[in-house]
């Protein structure tokens, strides 16, 4: 004998629900320094490991390779290079965007890591891997120590 199975598909149920929770993330020791510099001084900072001679952007509190504590901050400038990019035409819900948005991984000379950010003041067909870009900051009164204090990166000379 075995269990009598459900044969009418209408009798197979689904239960709807959510997993709602609100989050507040602290930026951490390195993260707070990084974003406060962007907010207060419009500077993009890296953290340098003197032992491994690596500068991390975004900065870390520790060197992931040798585990030294990082306390040396380096201004890496506003200019970077498009390492790779994508052009988004739909939003997170799958709806079509009015205007496509370019997202790029931007790398900085002499630094390990990079920033994911938007590219502005250009068109998708003009963007190329390897092209130079420059950070455009929001006006200082709008900045709140967020990665969005950088409005976008724009093509640079």
């Amino acid at each position: 004998m075995s269990l009598e199975k459900i044969t009418n598909p209408l009798h197979v149920r689904h239960w709807l629900g959510d997993m709602e929770a609100d989050y507040i993330y602290t930026l951490g020791v390195a993260g707070e320094h990084f974003l406060e510099e962007i907010k207060e001084n419009g500077r993009i900072m890296g953290a340098k490991c003197p032992r491994c001679n690596i500068t991390y952007v975004p900065p870390k509190m520790y060197c992931e390779k040798c585990f030294a504590k990082l306390e040396k901050w380096v201004d890496i400038g506003k200019k970077g290079v498009v390492h790779t990019f994508t052009v988004a035409t739909i939003d997170v819900d799958g709806k079509k965007l009015e205007k496509p948005v370019i997202y790029a991984l931007i790398k900085f000379e002499g630094a390990c890591g990079g920033l994911i950010h938007k590219i502005g003041e250009t068109k998708p067909e003009k963007i190329k891997i390897g092209m130079k870009v420059e950070a455009v900051f929001k006006p200082s009164f709008e900045r709140k120590a967020s990665i969005n204090d950088i409005a976008y990166f724009k093509p640079a000379e």
Binding site: V12, D18, L27
Partner: peptide
Amino acid sequence: RVPTEKCRPKAKFAWSAGM
């Protein structure tokens, strides 16, 4: 006094009740 990032994930589910 301390900068933070806020987020509310928008996850909705339909759990199959099963047999």
